[in-house]
Amino acid sequence: MLRIQTQNNAPQPDELIGLAQRLFPICRSITGNGFRQSLSILQEHLPGLRIHEVASGTKVFDWTVPDEWNIRDAYVLDPLGQKVIDFKQHNLHLVGYSEPISKKLSLQELQQHLHSLPDKPDAIPYVTSYYKRAWGFCLTQRQRDSLIDGEYTVFIDADLAPGSLTYGDLVIPGAVKDEVFFSTYLCHPSMANNELSGPIVTTFLAKWLLGLPHRHFTYRIAIVPETIGALVYLNQNLRTLRKRV
Rank of each mutant, 00 (worst) to 15 (best):
Y75E: 11
A55Y: 05
G48F: 00
S116H: 14
E15H: 13
V84P: 05
L49D: 06
P125D: 00
D86T: 06
G32L: 09
L42F: 15
P100M: 05
D78H: 02
L23K: 02
P118T: 01
P13H: 11
S116V: 10
G81C: 02
E15N: 12
P79T: 08
R133H: 15
I101K: 07
D73G: 07
K59H: 13
V65K: 00
K120M: 12
L16F: 03
A20L: 04
L80Y: 00
V54L: 12
S38T: 14
Q12L: 14
I124H: 02
Q21M: 15
Q82M: 00
Y130C: 11
H113Q: 12
A20W: 07
I41S: 04
N70A: 01
D119C: 06
Y126M: 09
G81L: 12
S38R: 09
Q111T: 11
P25M: 04
Q82Y: 06
L16I: 07
E109I: 04
S98D: 03
K59G: 05
D119S: 15
Q21C: 14
T128G: 03
H90D: 15
V127F: 05
H90L: 07
Q89I: 02
A74I: 03
Q37S: 12
D86R: 05
V127H: 01
R28P: 10
Q12Y: 13
G48K: 08
E53V: 02
K104Q: 10
A20R: 09
Q89E: 14
Q112M: 08
E68F: 03
W63Q: 12
L107D: 00
I51P: 00
S106W: 05
S38M: 04
S38D: 04
T58Y: 03
W135N: 06
G18F: 03
R36L: 14
L16N: 10
G48P: 02
R28L: 07
A20I: 08
L105G: 01
Y126I: 13
Y75M: 05
L92F: 04
V65P: 06
I124L: 08
R28I: 05
L16E: 06
S106I: 07
P47L: 10
V76W: 01
Q111L: 02
S40I: 09
A123I: 12
Q37M: 07
D122K: 13
Q82W: 01
E15R: 12
V54P: 02
D62R: 11
K104G: 03
